[in-house]
């Protein structure tokens, strides 16, 4: 065995390197945020929120992309949240300990990390091809499919924290299961369920790849969900890769908006979770 001095030295060196790695990750995070602020903030004028996308040099904004994103995300939440909530409840209540629940949980975990671009291709195959065109609906469905696994996961985790005694007390009063679940279990796990929805929202807000094949993007103003619809991530993708300076600047402004939104949602959900536990 090496001498004590040598072992102590190794210990110190490894600790220093590990601390350095942790510092490096924080520095990289700060660097990304700084890049977004320094390039996005100067471009973030009022026209970003009041004007729709325009040709280069046309003093365009991102209004249609912001509204399109919000619309698609809201519809995705309306579709995805109930399914995720019910599935998570199934895993925590009816299926607990059964083989089928184990399989569902396993598949859900795989879907949670599955490449989002493939969800886009899937929705392209089942909605865009048969109905003959890209649409806001297709975009929403793709986002909803991405939302479901997030909500399932958090719902199950949170319901598992609710004490069995609470449910038994409700059953003992003669309540049917739907009342026990909706009025007792869900209510007890409310903060946790909200966390899941916020996390899902954060995930849906930044997704770009699945929208490429579903809602496609739209340079004009449109609220028609059955037609191609603009979205912030797609607008950023289109503008960032362009050779026009004002478009690139707008892309940075949009990138700053999305990142601030997503990080805020993330931190909010952590606060909710801290309250729950």
């Amino acid at each position: 065995m090496a001498s004590l001095a040598r072992r102590r030295a190794t210990d110190l060196v490894v600790k220093a390197i590990s601390t350095g790695f942790a510092a490096l990750s924080i520095v990289l995070l700060a660097w990304i945020l700084w890049t977004l602020i320094s390039r996005g903030l100067p471009a973030l004028g009022p026209q970003v929120f009041t004007n729709v996308m325009a040709p280069p040099g046309g003093n365009g904004g991102l209004l249609n992309a912001i509204v399109g994103s919000l619309l698609q995300i809201v519809v995705a939440l309306v579709i995805g949240t109930p399914i995720g909530l019910m599935c998570g409840t199934f895993l925590a209540e009816n299926g607990r300990g059964t083989r089928i629940a184990g399989t569902v949980r396993f598949i859900n975990d795989v879907l949670l990390s599955a490449p989002s671009i493939l969800i886009g291709l899937f929705v392209y195959q089942i909605l865009v091809v048969p109905f003959g065109g890209f649409s806001g609906w297709a975009g929403s469905i793709a986002l909803a499919i991405l939302i479901v696994p997030v909500v399932v996961r958090t719902t199950e985790d949170m319901l598992n924290l609710v004490p069995i005694g609470l449910r038994e007390a409700a059953f003992a009063l003669g309540a049917p299961q739907w009342k026990v679940v909706t009025l007792v279990t869900w209510r007890a796990a409310r903060a946790g369920i909200v966390t899941g929805v916020l996390l899902a929202l954060a995930r849906a807000a930044g997704e770009t790849a699945p929208l490429l094949f579903t809602s496609l993007g739209n340079n004009g103003w449109s609220l028609d969900m059955s037609r191609p619809m603009a979205s912030l991530p797609i607008a950023i993708y289109q503008y960032a890769a362009s050779p026009f300076e004002d478009w690139v600047a707008l892309a940075w402004a949009g990138a700053l908006l999305i990142t601030v939104g997503v990080l805020t949602l993330n931190i909010l959900s952590r606060l909710f979770l801290a309250k729950m536990k």
Binding site: L28, G206, E207, T208, I236, A255, I258, V262, L263, N266
Partner: peptide, 11 residues
């Protein structure tokens, strides 16, 4: 460190 996971891919 976890916030690094929250930043969207396009960023």
């Amino acid at each position: 460190v976890q916030l690094l996971a929250a930043i969207p891919s396009i960023i």
